[in-house]
Simulated scan of single mutants.
Amino acid sequence: MSFQSKLGGLLFRHSSLTIGISKSPIPGMLNFTRCISSTKLFIGGLSYGTDDQSLREAFNPFGNVVEARVITDRDTGRSRGFGFVNFDSEESAKAALSSMDGQVVEGRNIRVSHANERPSGGSRGGFGGGYGGSGSYSG
């Protein structure tokens, strides 16, 4: 069953390319445009003790924070060390990015950048599984 769904995905991808359907005709340009107009920031290097509220408080001085979210592990509920802050204006996001990148928050130097949208769809590419080797056990 898995093989059939992978084969179907390959055929769909091939037919989309053959017909000329593309999700983003100029991916670099679209990403560039998205970053220019983005109000959502990626915050990396967070302390494991940082929660949504303390993240919001750290970024409030730069403008109205619509959402501040620390990403947590599904199984343990513990912070994964990164999060997102969404502002109501581009100016606030730009000010926060330039001021907060490299600053210390709760004892850790954080990294701030524009957030990139996650690609839609369930597959992240490839066929999954394995260790990326040739599949041979011989040296």
Rank of each mutant, 00 (worst) to 15 (best):
H14E: 07
Y137C: 12
G133D: 10
I36D: 10
E117F: 00
Q4W: 07
S5E: 09
S123G: 13
G133V: 05
L46H: 02
I43R: 03
L55S: 02
L17Q: 12
G77T: 12
P25C: 08
R13N: 08
L97S: 02
E117C: 01
D73G: 08
K40V: 06
V66Y: 04
A93W: 06
V66M: 02
A96P: 00
M1P: 01
R124T: 06
G132L: 10
G125T: 02
P27E: 13
P25Q: 14
Y137K: 15
R118T: 13
I19F: 12
H14K: 07
T72V: 15
P25H: 09
S89M: 05
R108D: 02
D51C: 13
T33V: 11
V66A: 08
V112G: 02
R78F: 11
L41F: 03
S98L: 08
R34L: 09
G125S: 05
G49I: 08
G126D: 01
G44M: 10
E90F: 03
S134A: 15
S54L: 09
F42L: 13
F87N: 04
Y48I: 14
N60C: 07
F82P: 02
D73L: 10
P27H: 11
D75C: 10
I110H: 00
L30D: 14
G135Y: 13
G132N: 06
N116V: 01
R124P: 00
